[in-house]
Amino acid sequence: MKFTLVFIIVIMSIGLYGVLAKDNLIKKVIGISIMEGAVFLFLVSYGYRQDGAPPIITGYETRIVDPVPQALTLTAIVIGASTTALMLGIIIKIFNNYKTLETKEIRRLRG
């Protein structure tokens, strides 16, 4: 489990670095998507039980993994996708106004 946790934190750091340090707007959105992916991985990986089967009852399982984090993650993925779509839409409109995607050029997005 420690290996999973290291992995999750590495992915989250990459995403956070993308949001904070990159100048291109699309890269910031990609960074947010990566960060959300790390959080979902955290949710699902702590729902795993040793030698568990997927949570579909077919009568042949002995141990089943936790179904609740999977349901939460499904909902959160859809919500994250809608928010990312909205962000990209706003970026398209900003691009129409400014013809550039760098934060240095766009006045109020500096800092």
């Binding site: 949570p55 579909i56 009852i57 089943i64 936790d66 179904p67 609740v68 999977q70 499904l74």
Partner: peptide, 21 residues
């Protein structure tokens, strides 16, 4: 966890669906 074990044990009886998620 206790809530999840209830879902697994009685999910089919309570809801009739075999896909627990």
């Amino acid at each position: 966890m206790p809530a999840s074990s209830h879902y697994v044990n009685s999910g089919v009886r309570d809801t009739g669906a075999t896909n627990l998620v």
